[in-house]
């Protein structure tokens, strides 16, 4: 899968960077699609360092969090590392309240996340 609808991918300093297209992750079908695209984007031996940048995201449901967990497990199983960055305070609250801030490593800015993977 080279073309994605729910995410944008980039490579910065050899780190794979993923951004979400949608501001609000609510629609069930869209979240399913997001899950498939995320898995594709983070799979492969060259995806050992990944940053998921939330700068576009104002709403992130528990269903979307589940897709993120699956992607995180895939990256970990490949021996890779994942960082999240640019979370708005209310989106970060979702991770804090569910204690997933202990599963995901969260950095303020994308540059911090990339630096932490060097």
């Amino acid at each position: 899968m080279d073309q994605y609808e729910c995410i944008e991918t980039d490579k910065v300093e050899d780190v794979a960077v993923v951004k979400f297209v949608d501001e609000r992750m609510m629609d069930a079908a869209r979240i399913e699609q997001l899950g498939g695209e995320l898995m594709d984007a983070v799979s492969g031996d060259d995806k050992d360092r990944v940053v998921i940048n939330f700068e576009n995201v104002s709403f992130f449901s528990s269903a979307a969090v589940s897709k993120l967990l699956v992607a995180e497990k895939r990256i970990r199983s490949q021996g890779g590392q994942l960082r999240l960055s640019n979370l708005r305070p209310e989106v970060r609250d979702v991770f804090n309240l569910t204690k997933l801030d202990s599963v995901f490593k969260i950095e303020e800015e994308q540059s911090d996340a990339i630096e932490s993977l060097q």
Binding site: S62, S66, K73, V94, L97, T98, L100, S102, V103
Partner: peptide, 12 residues
């Protein structure tokens, strides 16, 4: 249970 799928919605 941190990485389980269920129940997170109830917490929120």
């Amino acid at each position: 249970n941190l990485e389980c799928d269920s129940g997170r919605g109830l917490v929120l």
